[in-house]
Amino acid sequence: MPPKVSRKSELRAHIRSARRAMSAPVKSAADEALVDAVVSVVLRVRPTSVAAYVPMLSEPGGPRLVTALQEVAPRVLLPLLDDDLDLDWAVADGSYTAGRFGLIEPAGPRLGRAAVAAVELMFLPALAVSRSGMRLGQGGGSYDRVLPRVSAPTLVLLYPGEYGAAVPSEPHDHPVCGVLVGNEPDGYEEPHLHWTNGCAIAHHWHSEQSSANDGG
């Protein structure tokens, strides 16, 4: 009998395949729109520090994400993958080095794993997010270790079709607060910020940012 494939593994394989099938022009347009939406959120909230990530080729955000954040946020932290798959952090200063598993990491001094606790807004990657806020990552569990340290709003960037599906959860999984979903190809709508039911947001922050759809 072949080994049983978990629902998470099936969902990961499906989304990875769909991302690989995206044409370069469609992906580029979606990434540009997502970055513009990220900048819009940051300009409204005006956080003094933001945590983000350097997108891999298949991840939403594209090559402009970090530089766009640096233009509107005074301090941007980026992750470095440790041997135990937990994440350390360094300030984005335009210098990078090759990390494990093909990751691109900041080359500046390490600040320690707890540095992320001080950020006021966090953008993180995922393959999918449910309406309850459960996040499907790549399988290493890095952000499941990080999220308990973060009290700031946590927002995931996704492509169309990756938000709202049922995501299997386990005790170690931690929900996120919201998602920015890219626009459909040739669509007229801009990316939308959807709030999940995954975490409590300060009322004033939620009110200012709830111009799109609610995840409830």
Rank of each mutant, 00 (worst) to 15 (best):
P185H: 03
S23H: 09
A92S: 09
L87T: 05
N197K: 04
P25H: 12
G94Y: 12
P60Q: 09
R113K: 11
P171E: 06
L78N: 02
R149I: 11
E208Q: 15
D173H: 08
V66P: 01
V72Q: 06
S28H: 03
G198H: 02
Y163F: 15
I104V: 14
E208L: 07
V76Y: 05
E10Y: 05
G141P: 10
G139Y: 15
Q138R: 15
H174D: 06
A118I: 04
Y53W: 07
R16M: 13
R145M: 07
P191H: 01
V146W: 06
R44H: 11
V146Y: 10
S58A: 09
D83Q: 12
V150G: 00
G178N: 07
A98G: 02
H192E: 09
V39I: 13
P60H: 05
R110K: 14
P168R: 07
V50I: 15
S169T: 12
R16G: 07
S207A: 15
G140V: 05
C199E: 01
H194L: 01
Y96L: 08
G102H: 08
G112T: 08
N197E: 12
V179P: 03
W195I: 02
D31N: 12
L69W: 07
M1L: 12
A118C: 10
V119H: 00
P148T: 14
A98N: 07
D31P: 11
V176Y: 00
G137H: 05
V116L: 04
M22Y: 15
G141L: 07
A152C: 15
Y188A: 12
V38H: 04
V116W: 02
A92I: 05
V26E: 03
G161Y: 02
H174R: 13
L85N: 00
L43Q: 14
G61I: 00
P3R: 12
L65I: 03
L147V: 08
A29Y: 11
L87C: 09
A73P: 05
V54Q: 09
E184Y: 01
A200P: 09
A18C: 13
T154C: 04
P3Y: 15
R100N: 08
A33D: 05
V72F: 08
E162C: 02
L147K: 10
V41N: 04
V150S: 06
L78H: 00
A68M: 06
A128S: 14
S6L: 14
S17K: 15
P153R: 13
A33T: 11
N213D: 09
N183P: 09
G187T: 10
A115E: 11
S40N: 15
R131M: 06
S169I: 14
F101I: 08
L124F: 06
K27L: 11
G161K: 00
E105A: 06
K4S: 11
P171F: 00
H204W: 15
D88K: 05
N213K: 12
P3F: 15
V181T: 05
G164K: 08
L103I: 04
A152R: 07
R100W: 02
Y143R: 04
P60C: 09
E10K: 13
I104D: 10
E105T: 13
L78C: 06
L85M: 10
M56C: 05
A21P: 13
L136K: 03
F123T: 00
S130F: 00
V156S: 00
V176M: 03
V91A: 10
R7D: 14
V91P: 02
